[in-house]
Simulated assay, not measured.
Amino acid sequence: MRTLIGAALAAAGLTLVPMSAASAAEIGPSTQGAASSATVSDVLKAYPGSRQVAPDKVAADGFSVTVQTSGHLSSAAVERMGAAPRCDYGHLCLFVNGLTYDFYECETTRVLGWYGASYFINNQTPGTVASFYNEDYSLRWTSTAYEEGTFDATPIGSVKPC
């Protein structure tokens, strides 16, 4: 489902490693200042009850979303470099369309505008199963901690970390 929110969220960039570690072909368009604020606003609208806790971060019940402002790193680039982005122990982290989703509570969350190749780190307690659902709420796939890699976010509709 490509929504207006999805299009705005896709315009944000995601930095996972220093620019010198990736080629220009692996880094997408950069966004600065006002574009970042607009994207944070869109994240706030997408998740009612969420709140802005930093210039680039929104907190909601059970998860946070960080808007990256300096460039989007493709999931293929992450794999080629052999360096995964950071994800705290006990968390499920998803890097989708220039946004970092950090899930830390066991609640099903509806997501909007997810599509394309993305990266995940399931750094929860060993054996914890995260479930990913299609837009119609049917199970799409699962990940058992510890696991990391790429996934196709089209058309993920909701996530349950455990």
Rank of each mutant, 00 (worst) to 15 (best):
Met1Thr: 11
Arg2Thr: 13
Thr3Asn: 09
Leu14Gly: 07
Thr15Gln: 11
Thr15Arg: 10
Val17Trp: 02
Met19Phe: 05
Ala22Pro: 01
Glu26Leu: 02
Gly28Asn: 07
Gly28Pro: 07
Pro29Gln: 06
Ser30Tyr: 10
Gln32Arg: 07
Gly33Thr: 14
Ser37Ala: 15
Val43Glu: 04
Val43Ser: 03
Leu44Trp: 03
Leu44Glu: 04
Lys45Asp: 14
Lys45Trp: 06
Tyr47Phe: 15
Ser50Thr: 09
Ala54His: 01
Val58Tyr: 09
Val58Phe: 01
Val58Leu: 08
Ala60Phe: 09
Asp61Asn: 13
Asp61Phe: 02
Val65Thr: 10
Thr66Lys: 13
Val67Asn: 09
Gln68Asn: 14
Thr69Phe: 10
Thr69Val: 15
Leu73Ser: 06
Leu73Met: 15
Ala76Ser: 14
Val78Glu: 02
Arg80Pro: 06
Met81Val: 09
Ala83Phe: 10
Ala83Ile: 15
Ala84Trp: 03
Cys87Pro: 01
His91Arg: 13
Leu94Glu: 11
Phe95Arg: 01
Thr100Val: 12
Thr100Tyr: 10
Thr100Gln: 14
Tyr101Ile: 02
Phe103Val: 11
Glu105Arg: 15
Cys106Leu: 03
Thr108Phe: 00
Thr109Ser: 13
Thr109Ile: 15
Val111Trp: 04
Leu112Ile: 12
Trp114Leu: 05
Ala117Leu: 12
Ser118Thr: 05
Ile121Gly: 00
Ile121Thr: 04
Gln124His: 05
Gln124Tyr: 01
Thr125Val: 14
Gly127Cys: 06
Val129His: 00
Ser131Pro: 05
Phe132Leu: 10
Tyr133Lys: 07
Glu135Lys: 00
Tyr137Met: 14
Ser138His: 02
Ser138Asp: 09
Arg140Ser: 14
Ser143His: 00
Ser143Glu: 06
Ser143Ala: 11
Thr144Glu: 07
Ala145Trp: 07
Ala145Ile: 05
Tyr146Ser: 11
Tyr146Cys: 06
Glu147Lys: 15
Glu148Tyr: 08
Glu148Gly: 00
Phe151Asn: 08
Phe151Thr: 06
Ile156Met: 12
Ser158Leu: 09
Ser158Gly: 13
Val159Trp: 00
Lys160Gly: 06
